[in-house]
């Protein structure tokens, strides 16, 4: 198989690193060579962040460039637009229909795009998920990231990978106190991860 290129984009502090940890741990169990790239430091302070995960038989680079991404998971809908250039034509975008207002908009000057999800859907196979609402219904807005992981797993067909029990992976990665919440989040994400 060709190396698969996945990117997780969002706003610093949304939990993309935990999501990528669930993804990579499962992919290793499925026997893939896996590399991933994270962003630390200055970029985490509420700024735009991206994490990349690559998997296949043999992966050299931990990073891919523009026009090379197979899948994007956007934790915030405007961030999907920012990194759209990294997706291949016909790539898959799982977009959290959720808004975090950046300072440039809050303090005036810039404006928040009207229909980010629609703009993505025009150009890419797009799965829109209201992960914020789902997480709040489950009782904790912080599990939004695992809802999105479930949606990604469904949209990408990861649940069919032999050798991986994704619920067990979620169990092993999230804090012990939050296992039940996150398993519920994963299942809710699975149900939501269907192309519109």
């Amino acid at each position: 198989m060709d190396t698969m290129n996945v990117m997780l984009v969002g706003v610093g502090g949304q939990g993309a690193i935990l999501t990528s940890r669930i993804l990579t741990q499962g992919l290793i169990r499925a026997g893939f060579d896996v590399k991933m790239s994270e962003v630390h430091g200055m970029a985490q302070r509420g700024g735009s962040v991206s994490t990349q995960v690559r998997y296949g038989e043999k992966v050299y680079s931990p990073l891919f460039g523009k026009g090379a991404g197979d899948v994007m998971v956007a934790f915030e809908r405007m961030e999907a637009l920012r990194y759209a250039a990294f997706l291949k034509p016909g790539g898959l975008a799982v977009v959290n229909d959720y808004r975090i207002t950046p300072m440039s908009v809050a303090a005036g000057g810039a404006s928040y795009p009207e229909d980010a999800v629609g703009a993505m859907a025009e150009k890419f196979r797009t799965v829109a998920v209201k992960a914020g609402d789902i997480a709040v219904e489950l009782g904790n807005a912080r599990c939004m990231n695992v809802v999105l992981f479930g949606a990604l797993a469904r949209a990408l067909g990861l649940t069919d990978l032999p050798g991986v029990d994704w619920e067990e992976v979620v169990r092993s990665v999230v804090p012990e106190k939050l296992v039940e919440l996150n398993l519920a989040a994963y299942k809710a994400g699975l149900a939501a991860g269907i192309e519109n």
Binding site: V11, G12, M42, A43, Q44, R45, G46, G47, S48, S61, L63, F64, G65, K66, G67, A68, M78, E79, L81, R82, A84, A85, L87, K88, P89, P102, M103, S104, V105, A110, S111, Y112, P113, E114, D115, A116, A119, M120, E122, K123, F124
Partner: peptide, 29 residues
């Protein structure tokens, strides 16, 4: 990254899809 090296050496620009909407800046705060 691999795409930048490929473009620099072989002149093959990556296939970039333009989306119709522009994101607002989101620097760290």
């Amino acid at each position: 990254n691999p795409q930048i090296v490929r473009e620099a050496v072989f002149g093959c620009a990556p296939a970039v899809t333009e989306v119709g909407a522009q994101p607002a800046p989101r620097p760290p705060v």
